[in-house]
Design a protein around this nucleic acid. Sequence first.
DNA 1: ATAGGGTTAG
Length: 921
Amino acid sequence: MASTVAPPLSLHHHHPHHTPFVHTPISNTTKHSLLPIFTPKATLSLSSKTHNKKTNPLLQEINKLCESRNLTEALNFLQRTNALNNAEAMGVLLQACGRHKDIETGRKVHELVSKSTQFSNDFVLNTRLVTMYSMCGSPLDSRLVFDGLQRKNLFLWNALVSGYVRNELYHGAISLFVELISVTEFKPDNFTLPCVIKACAGLLDVGLGKVIHGMAMKMGLISDVFVGNALIAIYGKCGFVEDAVEVFEYMPERNLVSWNSMISGFSENGFFKECYNTFREILKSEEGLVPDVATIVTILPICAAEGEVVIGMVVHSLAVKLGLNHDLMVNNALIHMYSKCGYLTEAQTLFAKSDNKNVVSWNTVIGGYSGEGNVCRTFDLLREMQMEPWKMKVNEVTILNVLQACLEESEMLCLKELHGYSFRHGLQDDELVANAFVAAYAKCGSLSSAEHVFYGIETKTVNSWNALIGGHAQNGDPRKALDLYIQMTYSGLAPDWKMLSARALFDRMENKILVSWNAMIAGYSQNALPDESLNLFRQMLSNGIQPYEIAITTIFGACSQLSALRLGKEIHCFTLKAHLIQDVFVGCSLIDMYAKSGCIEQSQRVFDSLKEKDEASWNVIIAGYGIHGHGNKAMELFEKMQRSGLKPDGFTFIGLLMACSHAGLVTDGLKYLNQMQSLFGIEPKLEHYACVVDMLGRAGQLDEALKLILEMPEEPDAGIWSSLLSSCRIYGDLDMGVKVAEKLLALEPDKAETYVLLSNLYAGSGKWDDVRRVRQIMKETGLQKDAGRSWIELGGEVFSFVVGDELLSESEEIQDVWRRLEEKIRIIGYKPNTDSVLHELREEEKIEVLRGHSEKLAISFGLLKTTKGATLRICKNLRICVDCHNAAKLISKAVEREIIVRDNKRFHHFKDGFCSCQDYW
DNA sequence: ATAGGGTTAG
C-alpha cells in the first residue's frame, strides 16, 4: 500500500494531463459583459400570501396535519369545515400527497377538484395535480390530468416534462419538449431547459444535450444557474469534462450546486485530484459557500476509491462540525469510505451507532466484509439484516455485494446458495445480478452454470456477453473440457469418477480438473479457446451489440494466450474503427497481446501512441520486455515511468523482477526486491519472491534461492518449490532436488509435473533405478505427463504438433524437410545434444527422439508453408530443450529466417545464428 | 405552481 498520504485538503499539484482544469475566479468585468444577461421574469410578490399562511388558522391546521403525515385526517378536516373550495388548502394537501407518495389521498383530492367547476380550469391546482402524480410515481396520471385540460400554460408543460424526467421517461420528456417548441405558442424557459437537459443526460445523449445548449445560448437562458448546472451535469456524466469546465468557467453566477456538479463530473471521469481541489475551493470560497449533504456525499466516495482515509477523516470531522453526519446518506458514505480504506472497525462502529439505517447502510457494511473475502461475516450480516424488526428488504446490490465474498474464495456452494436466494427474492433477473452470476460461475470454474444463466437472460447486454466470453477466455470451453475429461476417465485414469453423471462430473471438475489436469486442459484450450471466444465475439457483433472495451480486452487476452497474431491484428483494426483505441484498458491489452505474440516492437509502438498512460500501461510494457529477455530495456522503462510521475506498484515489480530473472540480472533483481520495501513501501508478496527465487535458481545460485525461500515472511507455495526443483534439475543438484521434491509432493501429491522433474533429475545423474521407481509411481497413480506440444499460426489457422507426431497428412513431407534442414545445419556446426533426452536409450535412438520434438516439426512445417524470408512464430507448452534451441539458432542462419519461439516462460528470437536470450533461459 | 448536484453495486 502507498505509504505516503497526501496532506489533507492542501492537495497535490495538477497532474500534467489535467492542467486545463484550473478554476479561475470569474472577473465580472471581462466575461460577463460578453454574454446575454438573463433576468428572471418572475418577481417576488408572494409576501402577502405567505403572511396569510402563517395567520390563517385553517391553513395552519392543514400544514400541521400534513407535516405529521396525517393526510386522510387533513382531507377529513377540510370536509368537516366546508373548506373544500379553499384552493390554497387543497394545493397544500396535494403537495403533501406528492411529498409523502400518498397517491390514494391524492386521487381523492383529484376527484374533488375535478368535480368543482371552480377548480377544473385552475392552472395552479392542476399544475399541483400533475406534480403530485409524478411524485407518486404515476406519470401516466399526470398525463391524463394534462390531456383533460382545455387550456394549458407553460407551468403545466414544465410540470409534465419534469414529471416525466423524474420517472425516467426520458424519451417521453424529449418528445413533449419537441411538441412544446413545434406546435404550441409557448417558448421553453429556464425551468424547461434543465429538465430537458437532464433527460438527455439520462439517455447519455450528449449530442442532443449540445443542441439544447445551443438553444439556451440563443434564447439568452445560458446565464441561468439551473441551466448551467444541468449542462455541467450532463457533460460530466457523458465524459465531456472539458465542456463542463467551460460551462462552469463562463457562468455569470454559480451556486453550491454548480460546485458540487463539478466535483461529481471530475469524479465520474477519474480526475480525483481536481475533485479535491474543487472541494478545497468551496471551503475557502469568498462567497462563503458551505458544503452541504450533496458535497459531502460526493467527495467521500472519491476518498474511498483512492484509499485516502486521511482526507476522508477530515471530511468526516467537517461533516460533524456542520451537523451533517446524522444524515443517512452522509453516514452511509462514511461507512463506505472507512470500509473501502480498510478501516472496518470504524465502519462497523458508525453502522452500529446509527439509529437510522436503510438497505444502503446494510449493503455497504456487507460490502466491506465481502470485499475482503470474509464469507462467514458476510452471510451472518445477511441473516441479521432480515431479522431487523422492520424487515429490511434486500435488493440487487445486496446480492452483488454478497456475491463478492463467494468469489474471493471460489465458494461454489455459497454461490449456489446465493443464487437460490436471489430467486426467492425475485432478484435473479436483474441485469447486473444475472451477469454477475454468469461471471462468478465462470470464475469458479462452472462454465455450464455460467452458460445456463447466460442463456436464461432475456435481454442480453454487452455485459452479459462479456461475462461469458470472459469465462471462456479464462477457463477454456467447458463442453469440450468435459468431453476430454470423460475420455480421460474411460482411459482408466480416475475410475472412481466413472459412475458419476456427466453433470456431477462437471461439478467435480471445478476442483479437480482445472487444478489437477490443468496442464492438459491448458494444452487443449490453447487450441480451442480463441476460436470459441471469437465465435462468441462475432455472434455478439451479428446480434447488433457493439463490444465495449471489456469485450475487446478479453479477446486480446485470448489472442495473447495463443500468440494468435493475425487475429489480434484483426481486432486491433476493429478497435481503430470503433474509436476505442485510446481507452487505457484496450491499449493495455493490445500492448500485452503484441508482446505475447512476439512483437515487442509493435507493443512499443502502441505504447508510444497512447495519449494517456496509466500504471497498467507501463507495467504491461515492462513485463513485455521482460518475457522477451530485454532486462535493461525493462529497467530503463522502470526509471522513465517514475520520471513521468507515476508510482510503481506491486505489478510493476513482478514484471521488473521477471525481466531481471530472464536476463540473468541477479544483482539488479536483488536490488529491486530490497528497494520495493525501503524505497517504495510495497510489501513484497509471494509472487515477487517467486520471481527472485526463479532468478537465483536460473543463475545457478541454488543455495541463495533456498535461503530466500526459508527467510521470506510468507509460506512458500508449490509454485516456488517447483521453480527451485526445476533449477536443481538444470544444475544437476540431486541432493537439494530430492528434498525439494519431497516438500513439493507433500503440498501437491497429484502433480505429474513434479514426478517428471524428479525423474529427469535422476536421469540427468544417471540414476536409472530411481528413474524407473518414479515412473512406476506415476503409472500406479495414473499420472501422465504433458506431451510436448507446439503451435504455429498460418493464415489465421492454428496448426498443432505433438512430440513424435505422425498423424499429420504432411508428416512425410515434414520429416523430409527436417532431414534436409539437419543436413544443412550440420555443415555449420550442428551436433545433436542428447543430454536432454532423459530416457534409457542408445545414442542413435536418442537422436531419433530429438528429431520428433514438436518445435522441430512446427519449424519444418512453417518453412514448408511460408514464403521465403517470412518470420516464423511458434508457441510451445513446455520449456524449449537445449537441442532444439541449438538447432533453431543454426536454422535461422542457414535459411535466413527469423524464428520466434514462445515457450511456457518466455520468448526466444532466433536470428542469424543467435538467440535473444543469449543462451540463458 | 414548474427547475439543477448527492450514498451501496457496475
